[in-house]
Amino acid sequence: MAIVELLNQDMKQAMKARDKEKLSVIRMVKASMQNEAIKLQKDALSEEEELTVLARELKQRKDSLHEFKEAGREDLVSNLETEIDIIQAYMPEQLSDDELEKIVVQTIEEVQAQSKKDMGKVMSALMPKVKGKAEGSRVNQLVQKNLS
Protein backbone atom coordinates (compact mmCIF):
# COMPACT_ATOMS: atom_id res chain seq x y z
CA MET A 1 0.00 0.00 0.00
CA ALA A 2 1.32 3.45 -0.92
CA ILE A 3 2.35 5.71 1.93
CA VAL A 4 -0.20 8.36 0.91
CA GLU A 5 -3.03 5.82 1.14
CA LEU A 6 -1.83 4.76 4.56
CA LEU A 7 -1.66 8.40 5.65
CA ASN A 8 -5.23 8.94 4.43
CA GLN A 9 -6.50 5.94 6.40
CA ASP A 10 -4.68 7.01 9.54
CA MET A 11 -5.91 10.57 9.12
CA LYS A 12 -9.52 9.33 9.12
CA GLN A 13 -8.85 7.25 12.23
CA ALA A 14 -7.19 10.19 13.98
CA MET A 15 -10.21 12.37 13.15
CA LYS A 16 -12.59 9.80 14.59
CA ALA A 17 -10.44 9.34 17.70
CA ARG A 18 -10.00 13.12 18.04
CA ASP A 19 -6.23 12.66 18.17
CA LYS A 20 -5.19 16.22 17.34
CA GLU A 21 -1.43 15.65 17.51
CA LYS A 22 -1.43 12.70 15.12
CA LEU A 23 -3.86 14.45 12.80
CA SER A 24 -1.66 17.55 12.71
CA VAL A 25 1.50 15.57 11.90
CA ILE A 26 -0.23 13.54 9.19
CA ARG A 27 -1.57 16.72 7.60
CA MET A 28 1.91 18.29 7.63
CA VAL A 29 3.44 15.22 5.99
CA LYS A 30 0.68 15.05 3.38
CA ALA A 31 1.16 18.75 2.62
CA SER A 32 4.89 18.17 2.15
CA MET A 33 4.16 15.32 -0.24
CA GLN A 34 1.70 17.45 -2.18
CA ASN A 35 4.22 20.29 -2.39
CA GLU A 36 6.85 17.86 -3.67
CA ALA A 37 4.44 16.55 -6.32
CA ILE A 38 3.71 20.12 -7.43
CA LYS A 39 7.42 20.91 -7.52
CA LEU A 40 8.08 17.82 -9.66
CA GLN A 41 4.99 18.59 -11.78
CA LYS A 42 3.42 15.18 -11.13
CA ASP A 43 -0.03 14.06 -10.10
CA ALA A 44 1.32 11.48 -7.67
CA LEU A 45 4.70 10.64 -6.22
CA SER A 46 6.42 7.29 -6.62
CA GLU A 47 7.04 5.28 -3.47
CA GLU A 48 10.72 6.26 -3.57
CA GLU A 49 9.80 9.96 -3.76
CA GLU A 50 7.36 9.52 -0.87
CA LEU A 51 10.15 7.95 1.19
CA THR A 52 12.42 10.88 0.33
CA VAL A 53 9.82 13.34 1.64
CA LEU A 54 9.27 11.28 4.79
CA ALA A 55 13.01 11.03 5.42
CA ARG A 56 13.39 14.80 4.95
CA GLU A 57 10.54 15.52 7.39
CA LEU A 58 12.06 13.13 9.93
CA LYS A 59 15.51 14.64 9.57
CA GLN A 60 14.16 18.18 10.03
CA ARG A 61 12.46 17.18 13.25
CA LYS A 62 15.51 15.33 14.57
CA ASP A 63 17.67 18.37 13.86
CA SER A 64 15.17 20.61 15.63
CA LEU A 65 15.01 18.19 18.54
CA HIS A 66 18.78 18.41 18.94
CA GLU A 67 18.64 22.23 18.89
CA PHE A 68 15.78 22.39 21.39
CA LYS A 69 17.56 20.02 23.79
CA GLU A 70 20.68 22.18 23.67
CA ALA A 71 18.58 25.28 24.36
CA GLY A 72 16.80 23.57 27.27
CA ARG A 73 13.34 23.90 25.71
CA GLU A 74 11.76 20.80 27.26
CA ASP A 75 8.26 22.00 26.36
CA LEU A 76 9.12 21.77 22.65
CA VAL A 77 11.20 18.58 23.02
CA SER A 78 8.25 16.42 24.07
CA ASN A 79 6.11 17.65 21.14
CA LEU A 80 8.88 16.91 18.66
CA GLU A 81 9.50 13.45 20.11
CA THR A 82 5.83 12.65 19.56
CA GLU A 83 6.01 13.92 15.97
CA ILE A 84 9.14 11.86 15.32
CA ASP A 85 7.42 8.71 16.65
CA ILE A 86 4.42 9.30 14.40
CA ILE A 87 6.53 9.86 11.26
CA GLN A 88 8.83 6.94 12.12
CA ALA A 89 5.82 4.61 11.93
CA TYR A 90 5.57 5.26 8.17
CA MET A 91 9.27 4.67 7.47
CA PRO A 92 10.51 1.23 6.42
CA GLU A 93 12.24 -0.82 9.08
CA GLN A 94 15.78 0.43 9.65
CA LEU A 95 18.67 -1.84 8.71
CA SER A 96 20.69 -3.33 11.55
CA ASP A 97 24.37 -2.47 11.79
CA ASP A 98 25.32 -5.94 10.50
CA GLU A 99 23.00 -5.74 7.48
CA LEU A 100 24.21 -2.25 6.66
CA GLU A 101 27.84 -3.30 7.02
CA LYS A 102 27.30 -6.14 4.51
CA ILE A 103 25.72 -3.77 1.98
CA VAL A 104 28.56 -1.25 2.45
CA VAL A 105 31.28 -3.88 1.95
CA GLN A 106 29.47 -5.31 -1.09
CA THR A 107 29.09 -1.86 -2.67
CA ILE A 108 32.77 -1.02 -2.04
CA GLU A 109 33.71 -4.21 -3.89
CA GLU A 110 31.24 -3.44 -6.73
CA VAL A 111 32.68 0.02 -7.42
CA GLN A 112 36.23 -1.23 -6.74
CA ALA A 113 36.96 1.53 -4.26
CA GLN A 114 40.50 1.60 -2.90
CA SER A 115 40.73 4.62 -0.62
CA LYS A 116 38.80 7.53 0.86
CA LYS A 117 39.22 9.30 -2.48
CA ASP A 118 36.56 6.92 -3.83
CA MET A 119 34.07 7.93 -1.10
CA GLY A 120 31.81 9.80 -3.55
CA LYS A 121 31.62 6.81 -5.91
CA VAL A 122 30.70 4.48 -3.05
CA MET A 123 28.10 6.82 -1.53
CA SER A 124 26.39 7.49 -4.88
CA ALA A 125 26.09 3.75 -5.53
CA LEU A 126 25.12 2.93 -1.95
CA MET A 127 22.49 5.53 -1.02
CA PRO A 128 19.80 4.35 -3.48
CA LYS A 129 20.13 0.83 -2.00
CA VAL A 130 19.51 1.98 1.58
CA LYS A 131 17.16 4.92 0.96
CA GLY A 132 14.82 5.29 3.92
CA LYS A 133 16.33 2.26 5.64
CA ALA A 134 19.40 3.97 7.11
CA GLU A 135 20.43 7.51 7.92
CA GLY A 136 23.05 9.07 5.69
CA SER A 137 25.36 9.90 8.59
CA ARG A 138 25.36 6.27 9.72
CA VAL A 139 26.11 5.10 6.18
CA ASN A 140 28.86 7.70 5.81
CA GLN A 141 30.59 6.51 9.03
CA LEU A 142 30.53 2.87 7.92
CA VAL A 143 31.90 3.71 4.48
CA GLN A 144 34.74 5.73 6.00
CA LYS A 145 35.51 2.91 8.43
CA ASN A 146 35.62 0.33 5.63
CA LEU A 147 37.68 2.50 3.28
CA SER A 148 40.45 3.24 5.76
Results as ranks from 00 to 15, higher is better:
S124K: 12
K42L: 12
A37L: 11
K129L: 13
E67I: 12
N8T: 06
S78F: 08
R56W: 10
D97G: 03
D10T: 08
Q88W: 03
Q88K: 14
R18G: 01
M91K: 06
Y90F: 15
I87N: 02
K102H: 05
S46M: 07
A14V: 07
E5T: 12
G120C: 00
P128A: 07
T82M: 06
A89P: 03
V53Y: 00
I87K: 01
L65E: 10
R18L: 13
Q88G: 07
K16S: 12
F68T: 07
D10W: 10
L23H: 10
I103L: 05
D63K: 13
M1N: 12
R138S: 03
E67L: 12
K22I: 05
K117S: 07
V130R: 01
E110N: 09
E110R: 08
Q114L: 04
Q34Y: 08
L23G: 04
L40S: 13
I87F: 03
M119W: 09
E99W: 04
N79M: 08
I103T: 06
L65I: 11
R61P: 04
E101M: 07
K59M: 10
H66R: 15
E99T: 02
I26L: 15
D10I: 06
Q13F: 08
E135R: 10
E48T: 15
Q34C: 04
S78R: 11
E93K: 14
A55G: 15
S115D: 15
E70H: 08
V143D: 02
E50H: 04
E48H: 12
T82H: 06
I38L: 13
S148L: 08
L40Q: 15
Q94L: 09
S115W: 01
E101S: 08
N140T: 06
L80R: 08
S24M: 05
K116W: 01
A2Y: 11
D43P: 03
I87M: 04
M127I: 07
A17R: 14
E81V: 05
S137G: 03
M119N: 00
D43V: 10
E99A: 13
E21M: 09
K145M: 07
S64C: 04
T107W: 03
K42D: 09
M28W: 01
E47V: 14
E135A: 05
L65F: 11
G136I: 03
D19G: 07
D85C: 04
P128R: 02
I84T: 05
M127T: 10
I86T: 10
A134Y: 08
L147N: 06
M33E: 07
T52Y: 12
I3W: 00
D63V: 12
G120R: 01
E93D: 11
L51V: 14
L126T: 01
G72I: 06
E101V: 00
